[in-house]
Each structure stands twice: as C-alpha cells, then as structure tokens.
Design a protein around this nucleic acid. Sequence first.
DNA 1: ACCTGAACACCGTTCAAGT
DNA 2: ACCTGAACACCGTTCAAGT
Lengths: 184, 184
Amino acid sequence: MRYHRGDVVDRAIAVLDEYGLESLTMRRLAAELGLQPSALYHHVPNKQTLLAAVADEILTRGRRPRRARKWDRRVVEVCAELRDAMLAYRDGAEVVVTAYTFGLGAGEPASQLQEALRDGGLPDDLVDVGTRALLHLVFGHTVEEQMALQAASAGAIDRAPGGPADFERGLELVLDGLRSKVNG
Amino acid sequence: MRYHRGDVVDRAIAVLDEYGLESLTMRRLAAELGLQPSALYHHVPNKQTLLAAVADEILTRGRRPRRARKWDRRVVEVCAELRDAMLAYRDGAEVVVTAYTFGLGAGEPASQLQEALRDGGLPDDLVDVGTRALLHLVFGHTVEEQMALQAASAGAIDRAPGGPADFERGLELVLDGLRSKVNG
DNA sequence: ACCTGAACACCGTTCAAGT
DNA sequence: ACCTGAACACCGTTCAAGT
C-alpha cells in the first residue's frame, strides 16, 4: 500500500468526521493508514500544513454552482455554501476557521465575496471592509452553530443557535449596511 | 510560597504575554511558579478552566467606564473596549475567543450588547441576532488584527488589517442594518 | 490546604536505515 | 519515492504520600 498526499488528506477528513478534531493526531492518522507516524512526513511537511489541506478539501467538496444574478443574492449564496461546507464534517468549522486565521486557505471564498461586492458597485475600501465583515460573520456563526449542534447530539440540551434562519438574518444586517452605501 | 488561584491566573497571563499561548503549558506555568506540575491541580481542575479564567481576567482588566448615552454609541464603546482588552496581551484575542467558543466566559460583553440593543428599541429576536453578529465581528476582526500585528512585529511584512478605523467601519455596517430596523 | 515525586498515556517531529 | 524503527523532547493529568 503506497499512499499519496491526497490519500492522507482524505483519510484525515474521515478520521476528523468520525472521531473529531481532538482525535486527529499524526499518530492516530498513521495508525489508521497502517503506517508508522514518521511515514506521514513524506506526504506533508507538518501537521499545520495537513490541517490547512484538510480545510481546503472540505471547502472544495462543498462547492456548488453559482445561480444568483444580483450581487447581494450572490453574497448570500457564497456565504450559505461556505457554511454548509463547514457543517458537512464534524469540527469542520473549527478546522477551516483555524486555517484561515493562520493565513492558510479560505482565499477562495474571500475572492468570491470581493467579486460580488465589486459587482455591486462598492468602492474598493468598502469591498475589503465588507468582505472581512461577512467572512467573520459566517465563521463566527458557523463555529457557534456547529458547537451547539454537536453539544446537542451529545446530550447537552443547550439553546439552539438559530440555524439557517438566524444565519441569514445576521447576514442581512451587514447587507443592509452595504446596500445603504451603494445607493447613497 | 503558598499560592492561591488568583496567583496562578496572574502568572498564567504573564507567561502568555511574554512567551505566547503555545508556551503556556501547565508544566511551564508550574516551573515559572517554582512548583511541580501536579500542584496546579489544587488551584484549577484542568487547563481548559485555567484558560477560561485567564480569558475572564483579561476582559476584567480591560474594563472601562461607560460614557456613551445613545444606544448605538454605546455598542461601539462596548465593542472597542472588548477589542482593546483582547489586544492588550499577546494572543489575548485567541484565548478569549476560544473560551467563548467553548461556552465559557465572555458572557459579560454579550449582556452589555444585548442591553444596548434593547435600549435601542429592537425586538427581542433582533437583539439576539444583532448581539451575536456584533460579537462575531469583534472577535473575528480582533483575532485577525492581532495575528497580523504579531506577524508584523516578528518581521513578516504582511498587509496591515486596518486597525481601529477598519474595525469601526465594519461595526458601522451592522449598526446601519440595525438602525434601519429600529425606525422602519 | 497545599505541595512533592513518580508515574501513565499520550503528543509532533527527526533521522538513519531499509526497498 | 516511500516506508520502518528508534529516539528526542515534550504534553495533560492522576495519585499516593508528605507537612
């Protein structure tokens, strides 16, 4: 059994989804592949890079075709895709957000949001401020939502975080602010 | 030298600020206090709780008197205080946000934002949506800003994240959205 | 109540050596 | 190119025993 980088990333996602981020160790992953831990370092320079690749793959797998025409509907579409992609795997939001925090990956959603805001006719500086605000909102909301979902499924009752409805309402708050600037 | 819980938390903040979160280990902290690692468990049940206490203390130390009268100015005031409190210590944003993510601490800023939005005359559901949106914005922005600041001071040039100006502009986006609902 | 000493069950990573 | 075996330098936490 000779593996390539893609196999390692795929297996990492499987371990993540089944046992959670805290169980996704290099040693555990190696065992899962029937390898010595040191063998992983032929495919990936270190754990941080592996996690960034996992984050990237999670986003890639969640990709959907663009349908919306109007810039603000496209923003909602991109954000919803991002949220759904992260929610599709256990601790997915945590992994994607951490990778983004360390400047790795998630550049794709950012450019798509930028593009949408530019199409909306916003000035460059507002495009940047708006893109960051939207990303922070989606990341923050989704991490919180996933945390609550997993806590709920583990028995803790906890108040639900709102789901897709609250998500879109938070988004609309920022979009309202942006719309008021495009025709103002 | 007999220590109490407060001493342990204070020393943890000192270690955090000087060497960063990755160096804040139970063993390192114990050594810093001249103790065996096991001694820490007389003051704190585990590391997670310690970090939550550190987060709480960071927010407490950053507390400032409320000056603003109007609800939307008070929102800005609360958010700015939160941001400044987190920026005051190395990796402070990371620690506070992680604690919040795990449902520990940071309840204080949340209730203050809720109160401000209620004073603004917003309906209950919008108060909750708005509070979460504002918190996510502040957390996301500040983690990103601190990351960039620390990267810059470590030699990596990196584009600056905007500082207080971009921070307030992101906030204003959400506030615009909220204001349009209060008189609408 | 607070602490020591020793142990348990792990980590990520490196490196010489094998095929 | 991909992997093994062994080691290095760590982790968080528990627990019996001391004062």
